[in-house]
């Protein structure tokens, strides 16, 4: 019997919003201006996303995609404009909102000297999440079994990415902010990531996704937003261009 078989798996379930209901606005950015150093990263950006949406942010390097994601997490100070996340003003109620946000950036935000399970457990407990979801999340991202007790420093870049995603799945935040999530993953890992994102969106999670892997990301995105020079240039649902 493998180590994984010993684990009593708890299903990773998310509750979908009732059918026919209007999607709740999860992210609302209005005329947001953010300056990083002397560089205007966001120049009056407007963006809105509802529950269950997967919004792909496209654009050239330096367009402001990463800044949008970090601004939604309250990690970038904004000079002007408003950001409302999950119904809360990010400037006033940042702490309680952050517990319901999951950010996976270029870094995996894992502690090298902790094991896979210790990392995920810390993330879940810090967010006051349900630790019973951890075994199932680890298995879902294929980092359960013997990998659970392995130090993160011994993992490959792709495996680290999977562990970070497992932490995200186990925490179950309402808003996922994913910056180049496919980077470092093998083809199977990319397919698995797409499945996990789609499942989360189907359960009502909002996903903002910045990716240069446009073909793949477009397949799972419900909207594609093109950002250039810190502004939204086009916002399309399929072939329908909104602005």
């Amino acid at each position: 019997m493998s180590v994984a078989d010993d684990v009593q798996l708890a299903p990773v379930k998310m509750t979908a919003p009732p059918a026919g209901t209007v999607p709740e606005v999860t992210v609302a950015m209005r005329s947001v201006v953010a300056v990083l150093g002397v560089f205007p990263a966001l120049s009056g950006l407007d963006l809105q996303a509802g529950s269950g949406e997967v919004v792909l942010l496209r654009g050239p390097n330096g367009a402001g995609k990463t800044t949008v994601l970090r601004a939604c997490a309250g990690l970038v100070p904004i000079q002007r404009g408003d950001i409302s996340v999950l119904g809360c003003d990010l400037r006033k109620d940042r702490r309680s909102v952050r517990r319901r946000i999951g950010l996976l950036g270029h870094a995996t935000s894992l502690y090298e000297d902790l094991t896979v399970e210790q990392n995920v457990r810390f993330a879940v407990r810090a967010a006051a999440g349900d630790v019973d979801r951890i075994p199932a999340a680890l298995e879902r991202l294929d980092v359960g079994g013997r990998l659970r007790t392995l130090g993160v420093m011994h993992l490959s870049a792709g495996q680290r990415r999977r562990v970070a995603l497992a932490a995200l799945v186990a925490r179950g935040p309402r808003l996922w902010l994913l910056d180049e999530p496919h980077a470092g993953l093998d083809p199977d890992g990319r397919d698995l990531l797409d499945e996990v994102i789609s499942e989360a969106a189907a359960a009502g999670t909002t996903v903002l996704l910045a990716s240069h892997d446009v073909d793949r990301a477009t397949r799972i995105a419900s909207r594609v937003v093109l950002i250039t020079g810190g502004r939204v240039v086009t916002d399309s649902v399929g072939d329908h261009h909104v602005s």
Partner: peptide, 12 residues
Amino acid sequence: EDGAGDALRLSG
């Protein structure tokens, strides 16, 4: 290390 500080800030 590896952006862990961001995770701590976002942990709530």
